[in-house]
Each structure stands twice: as structure tokens, then as C-alpha cells.
Simulated scan of single mutants.
Amino acid sequence: MYDLNHYKWPSDKLLGETTINIGLFEGGRAANVVSPTANLTALLRTAVNAETIDKIVKGIIEKYEKTTECKFEFNLMQGSDPTFLDYKLKGFDTFIAKYSTDIPNMENRGFKRYLYGPGSIHSAHSDHEYVTSKSLLDSVEDLKKLIKYAL
């Protein structure tokens, strides 16, 4: 876990650094008992292709399998390469974000692809997530503009 969290992950000039969040760690029965098993779930937001990240993770695991009696099981739950979207639009403030989206699961047929929604990324997916009614109403007008740009 330490090596995963402190690894110098690859970066991309446009997308920036690959980030990791160890969001779930489970194991043990009591504070005074060494746990026979533990589970770790991490989310990596990759700035490079998924195959490169996969090799790095497997290399870290192999390092510990060779030097300890521990056994590791690696399950890739979802992997996707970085997604590049259209983002330069007049009248819209845009930025490059490090988060996941369902867009890689959609077939790219050569049409414009924008990631947009009401609210703020600063509160999204948090315990204080909210969308104001003004933001929701403004997004309707913004979506009309996006449709025009896409056509």
C-alpha cells in the first residue's frame, strides 16, 4: 500500500499526473491479532494508457511476492485509457479534470463530446454535494448552446 501511494506515477503534458486514492482498506478481527487477510481497493485516475499502469501495479505486487511469504491477488475492476474530450468553447470556462466518466464506454463516432453538468466539481461526490436551482436552470441554457456547437 505504501509503494502504491508513494509511487511516482506517469504523467501527461495535457492531463497532468496520474493520481491514486486508496479509498477502502479492510482486514482484521481485533487490534491485538495479526490479520490473516486484508483487502485494499484503490482508484487510479490515469494520465497514460491503462496497460502502462497495469504493469506498474503488477510490478509492485511481484516485488512483495518475491520478498515475503504473503500472497496477493490483483483484480482490475475497470480499466480505461485517458479520455480526451472537446473542451474549447466560447462562453464556457473549461478546465482539465482528473476524474472518471462513462464516456470511454461510449463508441466514439466522430461527433463532439463534452462533459458538462450543473453544480460544482468542488462538492461533487462528497458528503456536501448539492446543486443550486439557479445552476440547474442555467445548465438548461448551456446545454442548448452545447447542442448548437455540436451541430
Rank of each mutant, 00 (worst) to 15 (best):
N39I: 11
V57N: 11
L15P: 01
L40V: 15
R113L: 06
L89R: 10
R45L: 05
E69S: 12
F92M: 08
A47H: 05
Q78V: 07
N32K: 02
Y64N: 11
Q78P: 00
T52G: 01
S139Y: 00
Y64F: 15
I121Y: 05
D81V: 08
R109H: 09
A150P: 02
G91H: 06
N39C: 14
M77N: 14
T101P: 13
I53C: 08
A97G: 03
I121F: 09
P10F: 02
T19Q: 04
V140Q: 01
T68Y: 03
T19E: 03
Y149A: 08
V33D: 02
S120H: 07
A42R: 02
T83Y: 04
Y2V: 07
K98H: 07
I53L: 15
I53A: 09
I20Q: 06
I20L: 13
L15R: 01
G91P: 00
E62T: 10
K112C: 02
K71D: 02
M1A: 14
G117W: 05
Y114R: 09
D3W: 00
D3T: 08
L4N: 05
A30H: 09
K58V: 12
I121G: 06
R113V: 11
L43R: 12
K66P: 04
A50P: 08
C70E: 05
I20A: 02
L40N: 09
F74D: 00
T101M: 09
N32A: 10
D93K: 14
V131E: 05
E26T: 13
V131Y: 05
L15I: 03
T19N: 06
L85W: 00
I60G: 08
I61R: 12
G79L: 10
K66Y: 00
V57E: 12
L136T: 09
L14Q: 11
E107Y: 07
I96Q: 02
W9H: 06
K13D: 11
E26C: 05
K148T: 10
D138T: 12
P36G: 10
T68V: 02
P118D: 04
R29V: 15
Y99H: 10
Q78F: 09
K144G: 06
N105Q: 06
F111C: 02
C70G: 01
T68P: 01
S139D: 00
S80E: 06
K55S: 12
K90S: 13
F92C: 13
S35C: 13
E26L: 14
K8S: 11
A50C: 08
I53Y: 10
